[in-house]
Structures are given as structure tokens and as C-alpha cells.
């Protein structure tokens, strides 16, 4: 790796984790807009923004566990469980929509709390804990539903999932509010700062009196809460509570924060960069659809994108270290 060539430009470019993403997004937008007349239509923008919503919250759910140096393999499984719970409460038990949503969020947070407590109390690697709880959550989901979705959801709830003001779907409102709340939480509140401190350097954080275990439990709980929120949005988006919601979240949940530059070791996350990464992923997916390419290319490209992002982060770290 040539550390001394193009130092000023290279450094400035690499030092900012947004720049590469922003450039990629602009290139993607321009390319698609020139190649396809369908790209900038109101309906296509609406479709893109709609698919942006769930993915963004899923990415945030993983980002919070990555922030404390943990991981949550159960985001998808927990999401599936919340999805069918909310669907079941509305269809079978006739719960009003807000009550069902609150119960769903509580289940999500509860699942996250279990993950956090198990990780902290037993001291076992979070990977194994959440691999196991993921299987348990999926098992409960499938045991209850036997893979049969809930279709008869309240009309108002489904209407929220499809409604829009020109290109802006109503669905976009919760993710935007969550993103703002998260950015504020991480930048301006004590628990938020503590979360980043624990992720950055657990020993230093502990020595400065931050309750390390409590912060990890909090991160897992928030992660579960967000997984639940994503699941509820997914139910609204699909118009039915599918037991299969969440099965394809795992890769996406890691892809966005990592492409956005979250260090797997913790402590370094960015709400904005993660959101930009989701924008990039959505643009790529949409481009694939417009170009009528095999949908399998999305899977392939997502893997390549993660590797590229990891490589770029690595390069940035090397340069920063060398400077």
C-alpha cells in the first residue's frame, strides 16, 4: 500500500467516511437516471423510498449492537416473532392498532433484553447467545403460526402502509423520526455517549465509572426494540403478517452499518453514514429491477459491496495510522 503517494487528496477523501458513499450514490443516481427513463418517475421514487424504510431500521438495530462491540444475529428472528405477534393480536384478538403496536414493540424490546441479560450474565460470546435465541424466536414464531400468515389486518393499518403524498410514502415517517432520535441519543445524551464509550474502549469506560454491563444490556434492548419497529413497518408495508418476515434481514443488517463504516470492534458508528449506505443498497436493488437483471445479482453485489467497504475502511485506517 503506497502511503505517501497522493497523500493530500487520498487522505482527505478517505478520512471522510461519507465521501465514498456520497460519490457512489451520485454515480448510481446519474447512471440510472440517464439509462432508464423509468427511474425518476414519481412511482419509482415511491417504491424506492418504501423499500428504504424497513431496511434502514433493521440496519439501525444491528448498528446499536455493533456500537458496543456486540452482534445481534437474532434481529430477523425477533422481527418475525414481533410481526406475527402484532398480526395475531390485531386479527385474532381484535386489539386496537396502537395497542398492538405497543405490545409488539414491547416484545421486541423484551427479546433484546433477554439477549443482553444472557450475554452479560453468562459472559458468553454474544454471537452464540443470539444464534441460539434466534433459533428459539423462530421456533416460537413457526410453532404459533405453523407458517400461516395473518391476512385480515385492520384497514387503517394497511392504508398507512400503502398511503403516500406524491412520492413520499407515509411509511417513511417512522424511520426518519427514529433516525433523528438515534442521532440525538448518540450525540447528546448520557446513555448514548456511554454506549459509544463502552464500544470504543471497554476498560477505559469501566474505569471512568460507566456501568459496562448495563450499557450492553441497553444496547441489546434498543436493538430488539428497533427490530420490532422494523417488523411492524414490514407488516404495514406487506399488508399481512408473514411468518417469513425477517428471514433475509441478517446480511442486510450487517451490510449497511459496515458499508457505513461501523467498526466491528465497536465504538465507531454513524447514523448518517448508515442511512447513506441503505440509500446506496436500495438504489442498487432498484437499478437491478429496472435493468431486469437476475435478482440473484443483488445477493452477489451485496457481498461484493461489503468486502469493498471493509477494504476501504481498512485502507482508511492504515492511512490514518500512517499519518
Amino acid at each position: 500500500m503506497s502511503q505517501n503517494r497522493n497523500l493530500t487528496f487520498g487522505q482527505r477523501f478517505l478520512a471522510n467516511e461519507w465521501s465514498a458513499l456520497a460519490v457512489a450514490i451520485v454515480i448510481g443516481l446519474v447512471t440510472l437516471a440517464t439509462l432508464s427513463s423509468a427511474f425518476l418517475t414519481e412511482f419509482n421514487l415511491y417504491v424506492m423510498l418504501r423499500s428504504f424504510c424497513v431496511v434502514l431500521i433493521v440496519a439501525f438495530a444491528q448498528m446499536l449492537t455493533l456500537a458496543v462491540g456486540q452482534m445481534n444475529l437474532s434481529v430477523g428472528a425477533l422481527g418475525g416473532l414481533v410481526a406475527i405477534a402484532v398480526g395475531g393480536m390485531m386479527e385474532k384478538w381484535g386489539f386496537p392498532v396502537p395497542v398492538a403496536i405497543l405490545c409488539g414493540l414491547a416484545i421486541g424490546a423484551g427479546g433484546g433484553l433477554i439477549n443482553g441479560l444472557l450475554t452479560v450474565r453468562t459472559g458468553i460470546n454474544g454471537f452464540i447467545i443470539t444464534l441460539a435465541t434466534a433459533s428459539a424466536f423462530t421456533g416460537i414464531n413457526l410453532g404459533i403460526t405453523e407458517s400461516i400468515p395473518f391476512y385480515n389486518l385492520p384497514a387503517s393499518f394497511v392504508a398507512f402502509g400503502t398511503g403516500r403524498i406524491s412520492a413520499l410514502p407515509y411509511l417513511l415517517l417512522p424511520p426518519v423520526l427514529i433516525a433523528i432520535a438515534l442521532a440525538f441519543f448518540l450525540a447528546r445524551t448520557v446513555p448514548g455517549r456511554q454506549l459509544l464509550a463502552v464500544g470504543g474502549n471497554p476498560q477505559a469506560a469501566e474505569l471512568s465509572g460507566i456501568p459496562r454491563d448495563g450499557v450492553i444490556v441497553m444496547a441489546h434492548t434498543l436493538s430488539g426494540l428497533l427490530a420490532g419497529a422494523a417488523a411492524i413497518l414490514a407488516v404495514a408495508q406487506l399488508g399481512s403478517a408473514q411468518p417469513s418476515i425477517g428471514v433475509d434481514w441478517l446480511l442486510m443488517s450487517f451490510a449497511a452499518p459496515i458499508i457505513g463504516g461501523a467498526a466491528l470492534a465497536g465504538g465507531h458508528i454513524s447514523v448518517a453514514a448508515t442511512a447513506l449506505a441503505v440509500v446506496l443498497i436500495v438504489i442498487i436493488q432498484n437499478g437491478m429491477v429496472l435493468a431486469k437483471v437476475d435478482p440473484y445479482w443483488v445477493q452477489f453485489l451485496l457481498g461484493a459491496l461489503i468486502l469493498a467497504a471493509v477494504g476501504l475502511n481498512r485502507l482508511r485506517a492504515v492511512r490514518a495510522g500512517g499519518a
Binding site: 446480511l251 450487517f254 466491528l264 457481498g303 461484493a304 461489503i306 468486502l307 471493509v310
Partner: peptide, 10 residues
């Protein structure tokens, strides 16, 4: 973890 997650998808 990250490398094999990405390569699995690839």
C-alpha cells in the same frame, strides 16, 4: 465473521 458473511452472500 465479516469476511465470511460477505463471501457467503457472494
Amino acid at each position: 465473521f465479516i469476511i465470511t458473511l460477505a463471501s457467503a452472500s457472494l
